[in-house]
């Protein structure tokens, strides 16, 4: 699988270069938002009001981190299940978000929205949260502090490991990969 080193905010050329199944090491600025923050953001978008943070052109990481110990940038911080944000995602991509990071397959409408708005869905490793926290150099709450772990944070990440789940061409890594292994027996563990 090709490996891309990509800067965030992500360029249009980089988005076009990604194919589902590719591995990515992402470096730069990303923003966190999950269930509760999305609910508020969508209400603002629907009313045509400004968001508390300009997310146009940005990548959103679906994560609710653990509190940091003194001296840590962030506590354990792995991706949450992405499909819970599916109802909000077409509107977020239409607004201008260029990528989302989460885990697990999503609804067809998200895949379609990725193609329509030129955005990618990147899968992080669910549960590898201590390891992924090490790739976060800086974290700062920038909106909705009252939501605690669900607040919007600006993160600076270095070589954050991801897999392209949905590309802009309709590609879907889950649909491509699973049939290759279906029906295979597991070798007995030594």
């Amino acid at each position: 699988m090709p490996l891309h080193r990509i800067k965030s905010p992500i360029s249009e050329a980089d988005i076009k270069s990604l194919r589902c199944g590719d591995e990515v090491l992402l470096t730069g600025t990303i923003f966190t938002a999950r269930d509760a923050a999305h609910k508020r953001l969508i209400e603002l978008i629907e009313k045509g009001e400004d968001l508390p943070v300009d997310l146009k052109g940005q990548i959103i990481y679906y994560v609710g981190p653990c509190p940091p110990r003194p001296g840590q940038a962030i506590g354990s911080a792995g991706p949450t299940t992405a499909y819970r944000m599916d109802p909000f995602t077409p509107a977020m991509l239409s607004y201008g978000v260029k990528g989302t990071i989460g885990k697990g397959p999503r609804r067809e409408l998200v895949k379609e929205a990725c193609s329509q708005y030129g955005a990618v869905y990147l899968a992080g490793i669910g549960g590898a949260s201590a390891l992924l926290a090490m790739a976060v150099e800086k974290a700062e709450v920038v909106a909705y502090a009252d939501l605690g772990t669900e607040a919007i944070r600006r993160l600076e990440v270095v070589d954050f490991p991801l897999i392209v789940a949905y590309d802009i061409y309709g590609g879907d890594v889950f649909q491509n990969e699973i049939p290759k292994y279906a029906g295979l027996d597991l070798p007995v563990c030594k």
Binding site: G75, G78, A128, M134
Partner: peptide, 22 residues
């Protein structure tokens, strides 16, 4: 992915950090 989960488990134990954020 599985190898990264093993690294993650060892890191979490060593650093007294949650294995998973949830």
């Amino acid at each position: 992915i599985l190898n990264k989960l093993i690294d993650n488990a060892e890191l979490a134990t060593r650093e007294r950090m949650p294995y998973c954020h949830d």
